[in-house]
C-alpha cells in the first residue's frame, strides 16, 4: 500500500510541474502581460516584483526563481495589493472554504448514498422513482440557480434562515452547505444506484442468498463495497467541481473564502494572485485525487500491487 502511495506521489510531481509551468508562462506571456511596465503599477509593487521575480532577468531565470520560491512554499506577493502575499490570502480563506466544502461533501454523501442505495433495493418502485426524479432536479438546478432560490424562499420569504454570512449568525452555514452539496448529492445518488444495481446482479450476490444470509447482511457486507466503488472514483471530479462551486456559493452568500478571493482577484486582474491560487488549487485537487485513488485500491483487493495470482 505504501509503495502504491509513494508511486502515485512520484507521478503527481511531474504533473504538478507541468501545471506550474503552463500557468506561469500563460500568465507571463499574456497580451499586455502582467509584468508589463507600461501599465500603471505602483512603484512599491514594481520594486517587490523586481525583487521576487528579477524582472530584469531572462524569462527562464524568472521561471526558475518562481519555482525555487514555490518549493519553499512561497507563492509570491499580490500584484494589486503590495502589502499582501498570496500565502496570506490563502491562509485567511482556506479554513472557511474547507469547512464549507466538508459540510457540503458530508451532506452530499449522506443524502446521495442513502437515496441511491434505497432506490437500488427498491428498483422500479415509488421508492426508486421519487429519489431519482429529485436527483434529476438536483442535476438540472445548478448551484447559482438553486442558491438564490433557496435564499429567496427560506431567507427572504419565510425568514427562517440568514441570507448571507458565515459563522456570524445562527444557522447561516446551512443554506450555503446545501447549495454547494445538492448537485453532488444528486450525482452520488444516481451513481450509487447504478453501482448497487450492477453489483446486485452479480453471481456472488446469488451465492450469498443461497447461503441463507439476510437481506441486510447481503447489502452491507457483500454489495456495498463493490456498489460504492464508482462513487469513490467520482470523488476526484466531485471535489474539483466543489471547488469551482465554492466560487459561486461564496459569491452568493458573501462568504470570505478562497473562492470569493479568487473571483475578486480575477476581476481585479491580480495576475500573481490568480496564478498562485490556481497552483494551490491544482495541488489540492491532485492530493485529494490521490486519496480517492488510495481508497479505491483499498476497497478492491484485485488492484493491490502485492496481489499474486496463482
Amino acid at each position: 500500500m505504501l509503495r502504491f502511495i509513494l508511486g502515485r506521489l512520484g507521478q503527481a510531481i511531474p504533473v504538478m510541474l507541468v501545471v506550474v509551468t503552463i500557468t506561469f508562462f500563460m500568465v507571463r506571456l499574456a497580451p499586455g502581460g502582467p509584468f508589463d511596465t507600461e501599465r500603471a503599477v505602483p512603484p512599491e509593487v514594481m520594486e517587490a516584483l523586481n525583487e521576487r521575480y528579477n524582472l530584469d532577468q531572462s524569462m527562464g531565470a524568472q521561471y526558475l526563481n518562481y519555482l525555487g520560491n514555490l518549493l519553499q512554499g512561497d507563492l509570491g506577493p499580490s500584484f494589486k495589493f503590495p502589502n499582501r502575499t498570496v500565502n496570506e490570502m490563502i491562509a485567511s480563506g482556506a479554513p472557511t472554504t474547507f469547512e464549507l466544502g466538508l459540510y457540503a461533501i458530508v451532506f452530499a454523501l449522506v443524502i446521495g448514498l442513502l437515496a441511491g442505495v434505497v432506490a437500488s433495493l427498491r428498483a422500479n418502485t415509488l421508492q426508486d422513482y421519487v429519489p431519482m426524479s429529485l436527483a434529476m432536479v438536483g442535476i438540472c438546478l445548478p448551484s447559482f440557480v438553486l442558491g438564490p432560490m433557496l435564499v429567496l424562499v427560506f431567507g427572504i420569504w419565510l425568514e427562517w434562515l440568514p441570507v448571507s454570512g458565515w459563522g456570524s449568525s445562527a444557522g447561516d452555514k446551512i443554506l450555503p452547505s446545501i447549495t454547494l452539496g445538492s448537485t453532488y448529492a444528486a450525482y452520488i445518488a444516481r451513481i450509487s444506484r447504478g453501482g448497487m444495481l450492477e453489483v446486485l446482479s452479480q453471481d456472488y450476490i446469488r451465492t450469498a442468498r443461497a447461503k441463507g444470509l439476510s437481506t441486510f447482511r447481503i447489502v452491507t457486507v457483500h454489495a456495498l463495497r463493490g456498489g460504492i466503488t464508482p462513487v469513490v472514483s467520482f470523488m476526484g471530479p466531485a471535489i474539483a467541481g466543489l471547488l469551482a462551486g465554492s466560487f459561486v456559493v461564496e459569491t452568493i452568500f458573501q462568504i470570505p473564502g478562497l473562492g470569493r478571493f479568487f473571483i475578486q482577484a480575477a476581476f481585479n486582474r491580480d495576475y500573481t494572485m490568480v496564478l498562485g491560487m490556481t497552483i494551490f488549487f491544482a495541488g489540492l485537487i491532485i492530493l485529494l485525487n490521490l486519496i480517492a485513488d488510495t481508497v479505491l485500491v483499498w476497497l478492491n483487493p484485485k488492484l493491490r500491487p502485492n496481489a499474486r495470482p496463482s
Binding site: V18, V19, G236, A240, F247, F262, A266, Y271, T278
Partner: peptide
C-alpha cells in the same frame, strides 16, 4: 487521466482573466 484530475473550471477562469 492526468488532465481529468485538474481543476478545469479554474483554468477557464484563468484563461478569461488573461485573454
Amino acid at each position: 487521466d492526468v488532465l481529468y484530475a485538474l481543476p478545469f473550471a479554474i483554468f477557464v477562469v484563468l484563461l478569461t482573466v488573461i485573454f
